[in-house]
Design a protein around this nucleic acid. Structure first.
Length: 358
DNA sequence: GGAGGAATAT
DNA sequence: AATATTCCTC
């Protein structure tokens, strides 16, 4: 008898717990629903989990008062599987291809913005240190699209994690395909294929670019800083000299001809730039409302990605497109002031080279 | 090996 | 067309 009572008690508790879970999951589903297109699988998984729990609830309330209901099995079976997709995330700190082991608080000592950045992220993880590492990695390296999709602050931690996990899985799959489908080629002159497999194309996230600018600032400008120095200052694991060099080259190119012709629809809110130590920066810490498509600007986990950095490029052109997509269009190249420009002329090397050629 | 610039691929 | 990667030259 006592046994029966305690069993009943257990089931009531269990049922209560299930109800809570269902509610929580439904809440999650509502949130994910916003991203239905981006995360169909995620939505499906949550839906499945909800259904599984609902079945379990109905199972415990009806016939199967004693013993394991079939739905209980589903819980450990289907539902367990579903949940397994989410739960392990918390234990996997190394799922980003290139984990930045070095990018931690210690490294950011000289990077004044980064400390601020960690506040922007509003992360309340228990194991903050561990998570911030991989979150930073995601933030730095991930495709901006995917990251921007996560830019809603009303997402709970679990939801975000689920999304990150799904993104990661998609990326992994894509990468696998890439490796299989694009073996070493010998086609095309110039860069591609001459030597083995072409490197995975990497996008410079806002955060990455911010670090780049920071390093540039510290080194005294794009025409003084060398790729190696920049890379060392950026302290981003996995970042190569070549990548920095390329980025620097791009930056210099745009600095060389800051005013491109794209007149017409300019807001009256003209953006003013100042060159400080050879770096183009917005004159003021403008709050020029660069309205993000999703509406309210958030400072969630991927908060820093939201800040429009396009203004930090020498020109307003599409240079920063990978970083902030097309938000840069709202910038203007009018009202640019140049205070100093160390060594803006093209290098003498080119001249000697040209001289040799001619 | 590192840097700058150009060529090339995506 | 813009941007990342690779090659060439110093």
């Amino acid at each position: 008898m006592i046994k029966n009572i305690s069993t009943m008690k257990n089931y009531n508790q269990k049922r209560e717990r299930c109800c809570e879970l269902v509610e929580a999951l439904e809440e999650e589903r509502r949130k994910i629903n916003v991203f239905q297109r981006e995360f169909p699988l995620c939505l499906e998984l949550v839906t499945q989990a909800i259904e599984a729990y609902k079945r379990e609830i109905s199972g415990t309330t009806t016939d199967n008062v004693y013993g394991q209901s079939e739905c209980s099995e589903q819980t450990t079976g289907e539902c367990g599987r579903v949940l397994d997709l989410f739960i392990p995330i918390k234990h996997s700190s190394t799922f980003v291809e290139e984990v930045e082991e070095e990018v931690d608080d210690k490294d950011d000592d000289d990077d004044d913005d980064d400390e601020h950045e960690s506040h922007e992220t509003n992360i309340d993880f228990d194991d903050k240190n561990m998570k911030s590492e991989w979150l930073k990695s995601v933030q730095l390296w991930n495709q901006p699209d995917a990251v921007v999709s996560n830019n809603r602050q009303d997402h709970s931690q679990e939801t975000t994690e689920m999304m990150v996990e799904l993104i990661k899985r998609n990326d992994e799959a894509a990468e696998k395909n890439n490796n299989i489908q694009s073996p070493a080629t010998t086609s095309g002159g110039g860069g591609g294929g001459r030597r083995g497999q072409r490197k995975h194309r990497r996008c410079w996230s806002q955060e990455l670019h911010r670090r780049f600018l920071n390093a540039l600032k510290q080194l005294g400008g794009p025409h003084v800083a060398t790729p190696k120095q920049i890379r060392e200052l950026m302290k981003v694991d996995g970042l190569t000299n070549d990548e920095v060099k390329s980025h620097l080259q791009k930056y210099r190119l745009h600095a060389r001809r800051p005013s491109q012709t794209t007149p017409n629809n300019r807001n009256s809110q003209t953006q003013h730039f100042v060159v400080v130590g050879g770096i183009w920066v917005p004159q003021t810490n403008h709050s020029t409302a660069n309205v993000v498509a999703s509406g309210e600007t958030t400072t969630g986990i991927y908060g820093p990605m939201v800040n429009p950095l396009s203004s930090e490029w020498p020109s307003h052109s599409n240079f920063g497109r990978t970083i902030s997509e097309d938000r840069s269009r709202s910038c203007s190249n009018k009202g640019i002031f140049r205070c100093s420009s160390p060594a803006m002329s093209s290098s003498t090397r080119t001249k000697t080279k040209d001289a040799k050629i001619s």
